Computed example of a mutant assay.
Amino acid sequence: MQATVNWRDGLVFEAESGSGHSVTMDGNKAEAASPMELVLMAAGGCSSVDVVSILEKARQQVSAVRCEVKGERADAVPAVFTKVHLHFVVTGTDVADKHVERAVALSADKYCSVAKMLEASVQLTHSYSIENV
């Protein structure tokens, strides 16, 4: 796996993945998300992929999944994340609590590479709620 990051101007950078996808980053958060915001988004995205995949395999009738990610950072430089909380909101018809609980736990404990990497130095927590429609 690889990526290339090119400076555009100011504190704005364009990153391109080895697979050819790109994202803009902005250290001032004026034009794009900051690199630290992208870390939170990556954790939420990685875990969401797992949760959706697991729920689909469990044949749950899911119509939406939202992952709300909150991070707390250290007061000193480097301002690393000290705590990250991922809250999943799963919407669907007759979605079983046991399946959502299992999907979130499997993502946290086994599958999400981003979360597993972060948990080495960050207090990582998870929760969920279900909105039946």
Results as ranks from 00 to 15, higher is better:
Val80His: 07
Phe13Thr: 11
Thr91Leu: 05
Ala43Lys: 00
His85Glu: 04
Met117Asp: 04
Val122Leu: 09
Ala76Asp: 15
Val89Met: 00
Val5Pro: 08
Ser127Cys: 02
Glu119Asp: 15
Ala32Val: 02
Ile130Ala: 13
Glu72Tyr: 06
Glu68Met: 12
Asn132Trp: 09
Val49Trp: 05
Leu11Gly: 10
Gly71Phe: 04
Glu131Asp: 10
Lys116Ala: 00
Asp26Asn: 08
Ala108Tyr: 06
Ala96Thr: 02
Cys67Leu: 01
Phe81Gly: 04
Val89Phe: 06
Val77Arg: 15
Leu55Gln: 01
Gly18Glu: 06
His99Ala: 15
Val5Ala: 14
Ala64Gly: 06
Tyr128Thr: 11
Arg66Cys: 04
Ala42Arg: 08
Glu72Ser: 13
His99Val: 07
Ser129Asn: 03
Asn132His: 13
Ser127Asn: 05
Ser63Asp: 15
Val104Pro: 01
Arg73Gly: 11
Ala33Thr: 08
Cys67Phe: 00
Ala58Arg: 03
Met1Arg: 03
Val65Cys: 10
Glu14Tyr: 01
Arg8Phe: 02
Gln123Tyr: 02
Glu56Met: 11
Ser17Glu: 11
Val90Cys: 00
Val12Thr: 15
Pro35Arg: 10
Val49Gln: 01
His21Pro: 12
Val69Cys: 02
Lys29Val: 12
Ala103Lys: 01
Arg59Asn: 07
Val133Gln: 12
Ala120Tyr: 07
Val51Ile: 03
Ala64Arg: 12
Ser127Tyr: 06
Val80Asn: 08
Arg8Ala: 14
Val51Leu: 06
Ile130His: 13
Val95Phe: 00
Ala58His: 02
